Amino acid sequence: MISILELYPEHLAVNGDMGNVLVLEKRLELAGIASRRLAHNPGDALPEKPDIVTIGTGPASALQVLADDIARIAPTLRSWVDDGMPLLAVTGGMQLLGSAITLPGGAGVTGAGVFGIHTDATQPRVVTNCFVVDTILGRLVGIENHGSRTTLTDGTAPFGTVSTGTGNDSRSEGVWVNNAIGTHVQGPVLAMNPVLADHLISIATKRAGLSYATTAEHDTIDALAAEARRLLGPAPQDG
């Protein structure tokens, strides 16, 4: 049994990010592995250590609302990531798991400190309908939609480099710490890029003592994802 914890689904799932959990559940099911979905919202007690954690995106106002709760659970989140738990954070969720966010109007939010990043969320909005990022997992394709500039600090590594779009700063994209990944790629990212879903699942199942292997049914789904990436626009080296 693989447990998947989604952080703040009531606040940070405005761009279909709950689809990332659905993808993980379906790919595990097709591999014959049972899964259990968990949710954490403000005031909840965190469950016992899950196998995978996801957090989606949302408006700046939501990040401010969540500031107190993220401070409360930050030590546990940091300990999970230090231990190698796979985690996926998309845009606003990535920002909330960073060190600090500057919000419109000058207000600031202290993040969980999982990622060594600072985010300026006062920047003009960027919408890229064919957002292409090169990573060590391969070329990822999706959509980006954010009004922010993210700066990596303390020698933190980016998730990848921008081919088309803006990402962090028109050069680097996202952040990668141990097995925790932050990215601006939406779509949702796991539906568009099964290679990333399988990366997270492979880590989680190995840690749980399970074996994960894809099947012909995975191949059928992956062909649909490849076609969706193709329709977004040219993406050479697409995996």
Rank of each mutant, 00 (worst) to 15 (best):
G142L: 08
D134R: 12
F115A: 06
T156S: 15
P188L: 06
G108V: 15
D51P: 00
V185C: 02
I181N: 00
A180L: 00
V133A: 04
I136C: 10
L152W: 03
S163Q: 15
L38E: 04
R207N: 12
R139D: 03
L28R: 08
S211C: 12
V195F: 02
A34P: 00
G56Q: 01
G187M: 02
A112P: 02
T164G: 06
A197F: 07
H218Q: 09
V195P: 00
G32D: 10
N168T: 05
M18R: 13
D154G: 09
R171M: 15
G147L: 09
P86E: 02
V175E: 04
G239Y: 03
G56K: 00
T183P: 03
H118S: 11
R171A: 15
T214K: 06
A100H: 14
A45C: 09
T110F: 11
G116E: 13
R36S: 14
T156K: 12
C130A: 14
A191V: 10
G32Q: 06
R229I: 07
G209V: 11
V114Y: 01
L152Y: 05
A223S: 14
A121F: 08
F159Q: 06
L46I: 07
V177K: 11
A121D: 11
L66F: 04
A225C: 10
A107C: 11
V114N: 05
V90A: 07
G111A: 09
A60E: 15
T161N: 14
N15M: 14
D219Y: 04
G58E: 02
A31C: 11
F159T: 04
T161D: 15
G147P: 00
T164S: 13
